[in-house]
Design a protein around this nucleic acid. Structure first.
Length: 473
DNA sequence: ATGTCC
């Protein structure tokens, strides 16, 4: 506890207010400056009590100035709208207040036209996870998110699901051999595969992206960490789906969830920083800095975001092709959909930029995959195209416990029991991804029955996630 | 989410 990072609450406890000075204090704190936690807290206390004596301090001068001249307005700051139109909230009774407040702020951006909150919404950075925001002629890097183009991909094989029992060990081995997990991890040089996404001209045109090409190659087909997974499971079609050409039955399927790895994360960081320099917003909205679509920076982000999306797609493709080859059976269908992205879409007759941060596109007839947890069903769905949701649905069950809460409160024995009850083999993972840390997927699906039709149920049976042991520092 | 902020 001694080394716990100083956060906003610590500063509020010292008497700081939710304003510009708080933001500056946190920024100073993040650089540490060789001060221990207690020393830093003491300094913050002293600056607050007597900002004047710090007005020429090498470290605390900006904080002292913000405290001395709180009302001094940067004339470049773009004001928020006083009021906005209402926005639709699905499953409101299960959504924390923090997510609502973030969405309220996002709606007040001068470029915002419409918004919606999905039933798995929870507090994020900038726009909440599960937030949908439609803007005019502007794109917001942090409304896309850090893991640009993160997605779900589902392959349905021409093999009965009984294989999950009868060929369990073989399937487990196929996952182990063809997937790589963990932050920073990828494939060894001799294991790397080529892919046309690496030929994208942005790898030549933009220097910082060019520097990422080798890592992108190494990480192609890897899954990363957090809530990402690769799993075999049983998909159950209660009735034939004519569009997919799949008869009623239970089949072996592969479901993957991952994103654009280091490439996307670095692109997100680069353009968020640029947006914050070019677009100064009031304190509570600063993470929602936007880039005009008619500006060079906006166009560059749009292109880089699309590259990250294509790369994320290529990562899934590599995994699915390897598994398909090892299985040696036919694939009946492959479905893929992404979240953490921005799309140019028509809304009420106008072209808008629709940001879906942890939300699934659900225009009429569009297929999507909404996973539950490692021990509960996920769903193959077909969108209904509801305008008030901005053609969207949730991207999963959503957390009901933060990672820290889950690690602190949940018992491993309970998780193992749950996995055992459901007949799930788990490779890797950690308590922060325990099924109990997530909302009940059935409640979430009920809250969005107006938004999507369920096509089939997917039950995970052999699940691989990142092993948390790889990052102990 | 990501191998730890220019």
């Amino acid at each position: 506890m001694e080394n716990k990072r100083i956060n906003g609450n610590d500063l509020l406890a010292l008497g700081y207010k939710e304003n510009r000075a708080l933001g500056i204090a946190l920024k100073i704190n993040s650089k540490r400056h060789g001060l221990k936690r207690d020393e830093m807290l003491q300094k913050f206390k002293e600056v607050l009590a007597d900002p004047e004596s710090f007005s020429e301090d090498a470290i605390f001068e900006p904080l002292a100035k913000a405290l001395l001249f709180p009302e001094e307005k940067d004339t470049n700051i773009i004001p928020l709208k006083e009021s906005t139109d209402a926005y639709a909230v699905y499953g409101e009774e299960h959504i924390e207040e923090g997510a609502r407040k973030q969405m309220d702020v996002a709606m007040r951006l001068p470029v915002s036209v419409a918004g919606a909150l999905m039933p798995d919404a929870h507090q994020g950075y900038g726009l909440p996870i599960g937030g949908v925001l439609a803007t005019e002629n502007a794109i917001i890097p942090y409304a896309v998110g850090v893991d640009i183009g993160c997605r779900m991909a589902l392959s349905i094989f021409d093999m009965e699901d009984v294989a999950l029992l009868e060929k369990h060990d073989w399937l487990k081995k196929i996952i182990l051999q063809n997937t790589r997990f963990g932050a920073g991890n990828g494939f060894l040089k001799h294991e790397r595969l080529d892919h046309e996404v690496l030929e994208n001209p942005l790898f030549q045109e933009i220097p910082f992206i060019s520097n990422l090409k080798d890592k992108a190659w190494t990480q192609l087909g890897s899954s990363g960490g957090g809530n990402h997974f690769v799993e075999f499971g049983s998909i159950n079609f209660e009735q034939e789906d004519q569009e997919l050409g799949i008869p009623a039955g239970k089949y072996l399927a592969l479901l993957t969830h991952s994103g654009s790895r280091g490439l996307g994360a670095t692109i997100a960081g680069h353009y968020t920083k640029l947006a914050k320099e070019l677009c100064k917003l009031p304190y509570q909205a600063q993470h929602l800095a936007y880039l005009g679509m008619d500006t060079e920076a906006g166009q560059e982000y749009w292109n880089a975001m699309n590259l990250a999306g294509d790369y994320a797609s290529a990562c899934h493709e590599v995994i699915h092709e390897k598994v398909l080859k090892d299985l040696g059976v036919d694939r009946m269908a492959k479905i893929e959909n992404h979240h953490n992205f921005a799309w140019k879409e028509q809304y009420k007759g106008k072209e808008l930029m629709v940001h879906r941060k942890g939300a699934t596109p659900a225009a009429e007839g569009v297929l999507g995959i909404i996973p539950g947890s490692m021990a509960s069903d996920g769903f193959l769905v077909r969108g209904k195209g509801v305008e008030s949701s901005i053609n969207s649905a949730s991207h999963g069950a959503g957390r009901q416990m933060s990672r820290t809460q889950a690690i602190k409160n949940l018992k491993k024995q309970d998780m193992l029991q749950m996995l055992n009850d459901q007949g799930v083999t788990l490779i890797g993972s950690n308590m922060d991804e325990a099924p109990m840390a997530y909302k009940d997927i059935h409640t979430v699906m009920a809250a969005q029955e107006d938004l999507v039709d369920i096509v089939a149920n997917f039950s995970p049976k052999i699940v691989r996630m990142a092993d948390d042991g790889s990052r102990e520092d």
